[in-house]
Nucleic acid binder design. Structure first.
Lengths: 140, 140
DNA sequence: TTTACTGCAAATCTTTTGCATCAAC
DNA sequence: GTTGATGCAAAAGATTTGCAGTAAA
């Protein structure tokens, strides 16, 4: 579907080498529907390119994160998840039963952010909020 | 300040042994202002009782969690945090700069919960929501 | 050719577990 | 005296790092 062309372009623009490993990692991130973990990226890439090592995945993610091209989110569970930065900010409804991650529009929490600032003088970073619970499918 | 008497009582009621290690771990949890991690409990106990092992801390936390006496929360950062269950549910404002954890009243998010149920048919578990951002002290 | 990038192995860090010993009851 | 609880060491799972070889430019 989507081409990882934009991020690839930015990498080579800035003088970074376009190795097959990086291209496949980028492809996995851009073609993922929801947020993907390092382990999931690795599993996807290793199927086509068995030689790759997971430390390359982690190093590539750190590079992309540092360049602001992908966003790292801590949705709990002891592992980070990643998505392309240009897909914008949004929130997540995480189903505790089936693990589904539902995206939630940013405007949804605008009033909450205002309240927190007013009542607690707390500048909430609501770019990546995770709300845990149970989704429609898993309701009894 | 607070006495860990209530949890201690429930433990012995149910036939669990009251070892000095357990008493000190309970004391650390009950006297903690905000949510405490296993490592922090261990550091606090080891100062007075150098013989204790961190696996005892984890095993005690698992026991207390299973009995519903303490609550385990995943506030990110790759480690769990704990607090006494009788202190009730609340939300957390986590400062990304100084690490402060500010408790937020449960009623605060009641309207959000309603909206999520109405618009997404998602049953939000808002007992332990973590909102990241920057606290008053760390504002420039 | 140059040196950034990779694979491999080993190290961290948090949490869990097997096992023999020990102590609360 | 029983048996549950502990200490110790090792394991497990995610992520990081040192180092020497490799390939993108």
């Amino acid at each position: 579907m989507k081409q990882p062309g934009d991020i690839v372009g930015k990498l080579s623009e800035r003088g970074y080498r376009l190795t097959p490993q990086r291209l496949m990692i980028l492809s996995a991130i851009e073609n993922s529907d929801n947020h993907i973990s390092a382990e999931e990226i690795y599993a996807q890439v290793v199927a086509k390119y068995p030689h790759i090592n997971i430390s390359t995945v982690y190093r590539t993610l750190e590079l992309l994160k540092g360049l602001g091209l992908v966003t790292e989110t801590d949705l709990g569970g002891g592992r980070f998840r990643y998505h392309p930065a240009d897909k914008g900010h949004h929130h997540h409804l995480v189903c505790r039963e089936c693990g589904a991650i539902i995206d939630l529009d940013e405007s949804m929490l605008a009033s909450l952010k205002d309240t927190l600032l007013r009542e607690y003088k707390f500048i909430a970073d609501l770019r990546h909020l995770a709300v845990f619970g149970r989704c429609v499918k898993c309701r009894k």
